[in-house]
Amino acid sequence: MKAEGTRVESPYVDAAQRALAQQLGMWAFIATEVLLFGGLFIAYAVYRVHYPDAFADGSRRLDFWIGTINTAVLLASSLAMAIADIAVRRDRRRLLSGCLAMTWLLGALFLVLKGYEYHQKFVEHLIPGPHFAPAGGPAAPEQLFFVLYFAMTGLHAVHMVIGLGVIAWLFVLSRRGRLGPASPGRVELAGLYWHFVDCVWVFLYPLLYLIR
């Protein structure tokens, strides 16, 4: 064995130890993500308290219905992901690939709606910068609201895109029959990531869309 130059790939004693290590790693990563988004949430909180009127005004310029529908879409995609996780453990392969496809499609729908919303903001001159000119004149620090809006939803969208990539990869694996109860780890870890990204939106939705 040695002469072939192979090496013991895994530093682990057994699969259970490996699974726990991966769980820990993923949750530590999620803690990192909490603080990454947390910086934005803190900036948001500071300015929201300072300029409540400007933030309420900015919020009224967002599309309540797109925000609400998008929340429902994301929650549904999380449900599909949760079902996929159960399916992989019970070896229900068709259900697994179906749920992964569903998760992907709902995630993509979210991004399409988000993209449409960005387009609207562009048309309405709500992109911060020299061309920022909302109808009826802005409440003065309103650009702050929109800088934060784009930073928060943009960072969230980047996470969504990464998640879609991961889920597409899992879908391919599932179609090839490479995912099964023997190694549920990949679906489980991807699920943790996907649900967490969902949780971020769960907070972005009231903070950005529901201020009156």
């Binding site: 990192t32 603080l35 947390g38």
Partner: peptide, 10 residues
């Protein structure tokens, strides 16, 4: 793990 992401976002 807990401090670096705040620098990243800043």
């Amino acid at each position: 793990v807990l401090a670096t992401p705040v620098l990243a976002i800043t």
